[in-house]
């Protein structure tokens, strides 16, 4: 089989895998952003129970490897509770839980990075806490966290490859399947790496533009 034939045959499968990879990333990140915000507000809330829940969640996620989380959910929990779960669903759950925990810490550090005089000034004008938060603190915090959030997006995109261990048909899995059949590890894994690189590099550029748009002009310091 010529190199041309090899790629002609593999390419559609790899592209299909890449599609799943992107889908996995996008769905997981949307959930993760929401989860991260909720967790962040739990963590800065006055209620000890909410704080504790958030802390335990973040500590568990941070303290265990993604791969064991995936195995534990997809094989462990389903076996213990006697039900089955699709591997895409499991992948989304694991990736969102993971990114959600890290994003919550990023959001929290962003809020903490806003000068505390801002909250005082807003409150002294009579704004209630939630208004001070949404109108004064968060708009500033968002600008601060954009680079870190962009970084987390890229990490999550790469982490989807780990989800191949539970069989989700994403790019890494597709690539593994092809290699296991034709043993062309150099050609296929090399090509797969290039595909990841192109997507991540483009994403970096897009996020970079977005970052500049948001921090330029508008009274930034």
């Amino acid at each position: 089989m010529s190199l041309y034939e090899l790629y002609a045959e593999s390419f559609p499968k790899l592209i299909a895998g890449l599609g799943i990879t992107i889908e996995l990333t996008v769905v997981s990140l949307i959930i993760a952003i929401i989860l991260g915000m909720i967790t962040c507000f739990f963590k800065i809330s006055k209620f000890k129970i909410l704080k504790a829940i958030a802390t335990i969640y973040v500590d568990i996620i941070r303290g265990t490897p993604l791969i064991i989380q995936a195995y534990f959910l997809f094989f462990g929990i389903t076996a213990a509770l006697k039900f089955t779960m699709g591997n895409f669903t499991a992948g989304v759950i694991v990736l969102s839980l993971n990114a959600g925990a890290y994003l919550s810490e990023i959001f929290r550090s962003g809020i903490n990075a806003v000068n505390k005089g801002q909250m005082e000034a807003a409150r002294s004008l009579g704004l209630p806490y939630h208004k001070a938060m949404t109108k004064v603190i968060l708009p500033q915090a968002i600008r601060i966290v954009i680079p870190s959030v962009a970084n987390q997006f890229i990490i999550t995109l790469k982490d989807t490859s780990i989800i191949s261990v539970i069989g989700a048909p994403e790019l890494m899995k597709a690539s593994n399947l092809i290699v296991s059949r034709n043993f062309k590890a150099f050609e296929i894994y090399g090509f797969t790496a290039v595909m990841y690189f192109i997507v991540i590099f483009s994403l970096t550029k897009i996020l970079g533009v977005l970052e500049r748009r948001l921090s330029n002009g508008k009274g930034s310091r």
């Binding site: 005089g117 801002q118 005082e120 708009p139 930034s220």
Partner: peptide, 9 residues
């Protein structure tokens, strides 16, 4: 306030 605390955004 001493530090003005205008909203920079």
């Amino acid at each position: 306030f001493q530090q003005f605390n205008l909203f920079p955004h």
